[in-house]
């Protein structure tokens, strides 16, 4: 068996989720190759080559891949697919955008967001907002799947010295063009990779009040997240949404502040190791999943929490 992993990167550096995919690939078993498709992505490819246990890194370096457009990247992966038994992409917005295109072009179904490897053809994946875990078996010749990074430990980032093989194939779809992007700037750790996450909900009242959470986060080296209600209300940007339709997080510590605990929110955080909930309503469903429940006004509790850290 041999496995191709579509690496997540920003041309300069690899995103940590790539390391979680390497672990998933090891559990499947077989040779592991990493595809780094980007523009001026030599640095990312070199980091990929340093991961222990990688057979080779394929570097496709061209303007067509600069923004990971699914139309171009999908065709590149399909061209490279020959001989691979598994193609893995991260369950990020980039991975989810491209992997189904690869699957469709190869004439196979995709397994979305797997959380466990049972056998080389059998996997577990959450359905219904995580209220059920399905075990699914694929009989397709090549298994195309997206992987939930938080469900697998990170592999060692160093110790390997895989060769980098250049791939000159260029696929450029004539009918799509990158116009621009607005990326959130933050010195805090990435939400899905952080070991502590502090999230705020509608109870925060407005965007300025998130400053209270930022201060706690700074003391804990935490990332800051939010519920959908907080994002919809315009308190914070969309990239902070945790939940069924936002980001899936599983940190060591998750602190939910002014969040009621709707199933869609729980879907994104209930695999956290320790959950703290701060809410003034003692009936709030969030308390049913919390390890430590504090009933009280967040505007008193959060500043006090910060001062005691």
């Amino acid at each position: 068996m041999s496995i191709l992993i579509i690496a997540e990167h920003d041309n300069q550096s690899l995103k940590p989720v790539t390391l979680n995919l390497v672990t998933a690939a090891r559990q499947i078993g077989g040779d592991i190759d990493l595809l780094v498709a980007g523009e001026n992505a030599q640095a990312a490819a070199e980091t990929a080559g340093a991961i222990a246990g990688i057979r080779k890194v394929i570097l496709a370096d061209h303007a067509a891949y600069a923004h990971q457009l699914a139309e171009n990247l999908g065709k590149l992966v399909v061209e490279l697919a020959d001989g691979y038994s598994h193609i893995l992409a991260p369950g990020t917005t980039t991975g989810k955008n491209v992997a189904p295109r690869v699957a469709a072009l190869l004439g196979v179904n995709q397994l979305s967001d797997i959380i466990a490897v049972e056998a080389a053809d059998t996997f577990k994946r959450p359905i219904y907002a995580g209220n059920a875990i399905a075990t699914v078996k694929s009989t397709d010749a090549v298994k195309v799947m997206t992987v939930r990074g938080t469900a697998f430990d990170a592999a060692e980032a160093t110790g390997g010295s895989a060769a980098i093989e250049a791939c000159g194939a260029v696929h450029q779809h004539a009918d799509v063009r990158f116009v621009g992007e607005e990326l959130a700037q933050s010195d805090r750790p990435e939400l899905t990779a952080a070991s502590v996450v502090v999230s705020g909900g509608r109870g925060m009242g407005n965007g300025d009040n998130f400053e209270l959470l930022n201060k706690v986060a700074d003391k804990l080296g935490a990332a800051v997240g939010a519920s959908r209600a907080a994002v919809d209300a315009g308190f914070v940007p969309n990239d902070m949404q945790v939940g069924q339709t936002g980001k899936m997080v599983a940190p060591e510590l998750y602190i939910a502040v002014g969040i009621s605990g709707a199933i869609q929110h729980l879907a994104g955080m209930k695999d956290s190791k320790v959950i703290v909930a701060i809410n003034k309503d003692e009936e709030a469903p969030i308390f049913q999943v919390a390890d430590y429940s504090l009933v009280g006004d967040l505007f008193e509790a959060v500043p006090e929490l910060e001062s005691r850290l």
Binding site: P126, A132, V136, K137, I275, A290, Y292
Partner: peptide, 21 residues
């Protein structure tokens, strides 16, 4: 098409009830 077989479904791991501080 149709090549994904559902072998079974299980409930997610239940979280232990926590404590009130």
């Amino acid at each position: 098409a149709g090549s994904v077989e559902l072998l079974g479904v299980e409930p997610p791991a239940e979280r232990q009830a926590g404590i009130k501080v």
